[in-house]
Nucleic acid binder design. Structure first.
Lengths: 234, 234
DNA sequence: TCAAAAAATGGACGATTGTCCATTTATATG
DNA sequence: CATATAAATGGACAATCGTCCATTTTTTGA
């Protein structure tokens, strides 16, 4: 943290001779505007989509002037990257929070993940739209991949561990491992598919139905550990 | 079909006095160019995404001149709509073909749907990218929804019928219906999630693994009718 | 309090967007 | 073959894009 936090790194046209000491100075207004730009970017992505999220629309929502994007981030693409990073970190942090709050058993942790992914904090019009747009934009703005990739990989690892833990109660090591692999893959696809469905049918999407649907799959896979409401009580 | 096929409807600035008889004349070159524009649009969407699929890029791929889009479709948005319609119909037609070819049992039909959705004809870089881009674009080009909506609804009905058919072998009418509802919902989400995953990890995506994953879920739900390879033989 | 430094502004810039139309080219019919 | 009509062309057009920078405004420190 000697450099005062990476988030304050203003773009450097020639970053060979970064005038060291100056970087320490943090003015409150600057960091506020920095964040305002990121929030405005996410807002714009949600409201207009990546294709229509222009500099003009972003600064309009941020209530700042045109030059601020170049000043703070160097380019619009880099701003979008920072916004993606921010959104990813926020998702991740909330997920960790939910996992910590939940019980220690594998089925409790899994229930927490399902309920997290279908909660109004995560599955809402803004977040899901942003997620969809940024995902699509990875294709022609490769650096966006890094954020979602690390997060997805971490979630995948957690899920695999939990599913393997449960699967071992139903069979031997080898079959449990194979089962856990398949179920992890399917579970991730299932949750992402739910997000897609939410995006497409925001008016008629029913959280309760979605939840019951997921838990029915889990109940069928692990009948001793789940029912249609979630993890079975101890 | 008296008007020579709706696809030849050139935009009409004032369509009050459509000079009837002229519409009959179909020149081969015209319909060819019409199709070329639609194919070029899909190609551009796949290669550059919705955000970068400009008129210039589309006509470059079609090998035609700038004015053709306005001449044939009236506007770029209408061209994109027609392209979406075309892609949707192609998907639908191929699915129906697969269903007809498959055996009559519910498990055979379901196996056909899974294999169709994960086949190289459907799950390929071009088609999936186009699907993703058009889906996202629905948000700010509402008319795009109509095509995917009707198709999705039809698929949903087919799936529900098949799943209910199977579920009845495992329980009474009421529980079977509820199970079928949940499974239909989950199955659709699962397949869409697979498409998402394919899009994001085209390099490492494994069809076989995806297929096994889906069939494992189906096997767990309907153990008498599926194994890890697909429908159980008779 | 006042010069120096940092931060923010808003317009200029060339490039590109989608739309449209005056021409040109190709085809069909008398 | 000549003429009418359909089809295709490619540039003009205003609007908007992202980038950048000469200014102005604000804050800092002696």
């Amino acid at each position: 943290m000697t450099r005062g936090g990476a988030e304050m790194d203003v773009h450097a046209h020639d970053d060979k001779l970064q005038s060291s000491s100056d970087a320490q100075i943090l003015r409150a207004a600057k960091v506020k505007n920095h964040r305002a730009l990121i929030e405005a970017t996410l807002k714009t992505l949600a409201e207009l989509g990546y294709a229509n999220a222009s500099v003009s629309e972003i600064i309009k929502r941020a209530g700042l002037s045109r030059g601020m994007i170049h000043l703070h981030f160097g380019s619009k693409n880099k701003l979008v990257s920072e916004a993606a990073k921010h959104a990813s970190e926020r998702y991740h942090a909330f997920l960790e929070h939910c996992l910590e709050r939940a019980g220690p058993r594998a089925q409790d942790q899994l229930e927490a993940i399902v309920k997290h992914d279908l909660s109004e904090d995560v599955l809402n019009a803004t977040s899901v739209r942003v997620w969809y747009e940024l995902r699509g934009a990875i294709y022609f703005q490769k650096e966006l991949a890094s954020f979602s990739d690390t997060r997805d990989e971490r979630l995948r690892c957690i899920l695999f561990r939990l599913f393997k833990d449960l699967s071992l109660r139903y069979g031997d090591e080898d079959t449990a491992k194979e089962k856990a692999e398949d179920v992890t893959f399917a579970f991730l696809a299932l949750m992402e598919g739910m997000w897609n469905d939410y995006l497409l049918h925001q008016g008629s999407f029913q959280r309760a139905k979605a939840k019951r649907s997921v838990f029915r799959i889990l109940k069928t896979l692990f009948p001793d550990h789940f029912d249609l409401e979630g993890a079975k009580p101890a």
